[in-house]
Amino acid sequence: MTRYLDRFEKRDGEWTIADRVVAFDAQLNVPGGLPALAPEPNWGRRDETDASHALFASLKR
């Protein structure tokens, strides 16, 4: 499962994606224990280290 964490900005009257983080909530382990789909920094987490927390915090300003 993939989540796109997008931050939008309005530029010249049009909304565009200013920043995108792709978080992967599932990965396939291959022999040797390496993830086959995404590097570890992009793995989804169930705590405050998940990338969505930083995105939501930036919206509270």
Rank of each mutant, 00 (worst) to 15 (best):
D50K: 13
F24Q: 05
K10P: 00
R46H: 09
D47I: 11
A51H: 13
Q27F: 14
A18N: 03
R11M: 05
A51L: 13
L55S: 13
Q27A: 05
G13Y: 07
P35T: 08
E14D: 03
D47G: 15
E9N: 02
G44S: 07
S58G: 03
G32D: 08
A54N: 06
K60E: 15
T16V: 07
R20G: 02
R45F: 13
V21D: 06
T49W: 06
A38E: 09
T16Y: 04
V30L: 13
N29R: 07
W43C: 01
A26Y: 06
A18F: 12
D12V: 00
E9W: 05
A36D: 06
S52H: 01
M1Q: 12
L34E: 14
L28N: 01
W15L: 10
H53W: 14
T2G: 01
A57H: 10
G32A: 13
R7K: 12
N29M: 12
A51P: 09
R46V: 14
D25V: 03
D50Q: 14
T2P: 01
F24E: 02
D12T: 01
M1T: 00
L28W: 04
H53Q: 08
P35G: 07
D47K: 04
N42I: 04
W15H: 07
A54K: 09
A57P: 00
R3T: 00
G33S: 06
R46A: 15
P35Q: 08
L37S: 02
W15N: 05
L59D: 03
P31R: 07
E40T: 04
E9G: 01
R61M: 02
T2F: 09
D12L: 04
D12E: 01
H53T: 11
S58D: 12
